[in-house]
């Protein structure tokens, strides 16, 4: 009787892993199998599919133009992530210290862009940064510039727009990390005579590392793959990996080369994610230990 009661109490709070099988099957068929097809196609030497080899990879890795596109995409992610961190951390800090009403107001302001269509958000930046846009209109009416500045189709424009579009991905994990910090630690630091900046540098910032790592990973992965914002704000002259991939696949119908671009891009993203995951484990150990 006691034994059966015990078994039952274990039973009720857990569910059989077989319940995950429908989704696992769905992923095997429509996520993992397509990725396998992508890998296979990237080893075709031409579009007819008659010969196999690493020609596509050799072509990409031996071509200064392709490598340049890869490098500028990865560098773009670094710039956007840095901007998001510098502005996102204070937002999360303010969120952690505020009362319940201000807290949910800040959270709704942060969530609004995340849930608004990316095309709409990018379109807004065209309105703001355009020749007749809000920035140029203000600068000209103040007499600071004579002719409208070129802001659209520039590096600065792309980084600004992407930083705004991806900011929520940075703020959400940071807000979680900052709200988990024991307020007693901050108080202890101040009682011991450390000022705000010193407490920030020695206590709060190090303890928020898990959030910084998680937020940076999401922001980085999202900004290097943000195809719409990159192409609309960057225009035709600035080419990044997603658009390069799309041009090869769709306009030029060069599927094997597009597949190779995808694999190289996937490996680059996975490498970044792995680095961040390792950093995340280290920082969690640091924050808790």
């Amino acid at each position: 009787m006691a034994a059966s009661g015990l078994r039952r109490s274990i039973d009720v709070s857990g569910y059989d892993l077989r319940l995950a099988m429908p989704l696992a099957g769905f992923f095997a068929a429509f996520f993992l199998a397509p990725l396998a097809v992508l890998v296979v196609l990237s080893f075709q030497t031409d579009t007819t599919g008659a010969h196999w080899g690493v020609t596509q990879y050799v072509q990409f890795l031996g071509d200064a133009f392709s490598l340049g596109v890869l490098a500028s995409t990865l560098w773009l992610g670094v710039k956007v992530t840095a901007v998001c961190l510098v502005f996102g951390w204070p937002v999360a800090w303010l969120h952690a210290r505020s009362g319940p009403t201000v807290k949910s107001l800040i959270m709704l302001i942060v969530l609004l862009p995340l849930l608004t269509s990316v095309v709409v958000r990018t379109f807004a930046w065209i309105v703001i940064l355009g020749r007749q846009g809000i920035v140029n209109a203000t600068l000209m009416s103040l007499g600071l510039v004579e002719a409208p500045l070129k802001l659209l189709y520039t590096d600065l424009g792309v980084v600004t727009a992407l930083a705004q579009v991806q900011m929520p991905l940075m703020v959400l994990p940071l807000a979680t990390a900052l709200s988990r910090i024991d307020p007693n630690l901050v108080a202890a630091s101040e009682v011991l005579g450390a000022g705000e900046w010193r407490t920030f540098a020695k206590v709060i910032l190090p303890l928020s590392l898990p959030g910084i790592v998680a937020g940076s990973m999401l922001t980085y992965a999202a900004s290097i793959t943000a195809f719409i914002t990159q192409s609309l704000i960057g225009g035709g002259q600035m080419l990044f990996m997603p658009m390069y991939l799309y041009q090869q696949a769709s306009t030029l119908q060069n599927w094997p080369f597009a597949a190779a671009i995808s694999i190289i891009f996937l490996i680059a993203v996975l490498a970044v994610v792995t680095v961040f995951n390792t950093l995340g484990r280290l920082s969690r150990g640091f924050a808790q230990g």
Partner: peptide
Amino acid sequence: ILDSVFMSPLVLPALAFGLAGLMF
């Protein structure tokens, strides 16, 4: 393992998955 597989579409470039889907 299942958990990480189910979460992986969040970080992988969606455009690469779209192309893979079309090829598949």
